[in-house]
Amino acid sequence: MAAQNDVPIPIPENKAVVVEQEDLDYSKRGQWLRAAVLGANDGLVSVASLMMGVGAVKHDVKAMILTGFAGLVAGACSMAIGEFVSVSSQLDVEVSQMKRTRESEEEDDQEQLPNPMQAAAASAVAFIFGAMVPLLAASFIVDHKVRLGVVVAAVTVALLSFGWIGAFLGKTPVVKSCFRVLVGGWMAMAITFGLTKLMGSSGL
């Protein structure tokens, strides 16, 4: 009987090892995933909001496209630099902490350290992809009101897609993630459109 009781012991131990390895993989994925999701969402929402703001006072499609393109370039540079500085500061803190504590598993810890260049690149590229959605949606629509509606529709679909992708990769609740991203994007566009329309009607 004692020998039979000992047989199942290696099985849960192996399972525990697998679970720990999976958790480790998700933690390594966190840095670039966070940068990519934030970059894509920021590119989508900020450029769409800029274009909606311009569209509130100008019917010229060229003005909307130029504004969106300027927002794309400026935003991608800003996101890349911001991520690089932020993650570099985090890296400095973690390296200093490792030196102070002199951990015995230093090589393993170094593999998990944040990568500033990776975060910057992921953020910038994702921002560009996000910003391309409203730009492409508005590029081929002549009628002003239809153009605004198409931009909102395209951004809505993209927001839901980005929310789902972020939830899937990060293993978080899909509905909550999509709802949060969608409502935030709608609010940004609505506030920008409304305030710009108000300022334009006041003669500023």
Rank of each mutant, 00 (worst) to 15 (best):
L204C: 14
A36P: 09
L195T: 13
G30L: 10
K176N: 14
I165N: 10
V155G: 04
V47M: 00
S161F: 15
S96E: 14
A2F: 12
E105A: 05
G82A: 11
G30I: 04
L169A: 10
A74C: 08
L44N: 02
M98Y: 12
R102M: 14
A70W: 04
M1Y: 14
G39E: 08
S201L: 09
V45G: 01
A131V: 03
L50V: 07
I128W: 07
K145F: 05
L135R: 05
M52C: 06
S86L: 03
V151N: 07
A120Y: 03
F140G: 00
S86T: 07
I128M: 07
E22C: 00
M52T: 02
V175T: 14
V174Q: 14
P8D: 02
V142P: 02
M79W: 11
V87W: 03
R34S: 09
I65T: 11
L50E: 01
W32V: 09
G82W: 11
Q110W: 11
A74N: 09
H144G: 00
S88L: 02
T172W: 08
I11W: 08
D92R: 09
V93D: 08
Q110P: 09
T67F: 01
G39V: 05
V7S: 06
A74D: 04
M199R: 15
D42Y: 01
I191L: 15
W164F: 15
F69Q: 03
F69S: 04
V37G: 00
R180D: 04
V17S: 08
A120H: 09
T172N: 13
T192H: 03
P10C: 09
T196L: 12
L195A: 10
M199Y: 13
A122C: 13
G30P: 13
V47W: 01
K28T: 03
R34H: 05
S96T: 05
A122M: 10
G185C: 07
G43K: 00
V174H: 15
G71N: 02
Q112R: 13
G43H: 00
V7Q: 12
N14A: 12
Q97R: 13
A80N: 09
S88H: 07
K176L: 05
K62M: 11
W186F: 15
S139D: 00
S88M: 01
Q110I: 11
E106T: 11
D109I: 04
V152H: 04
V93Q: 10
R100C: 07
V152T: 05
P116K: 02
V85P: 09
L66C: 05
M187A: 15
V183A: 12
T172D: 10
A63V: 10
L148K: 08
L24N: 03
A138C: 06
I128K: 07
V150Q: 04
V57A: 13
D23W: 02
L44S: 01
V133K: 06
L72M: 12
S49T: 05
M79L: 15
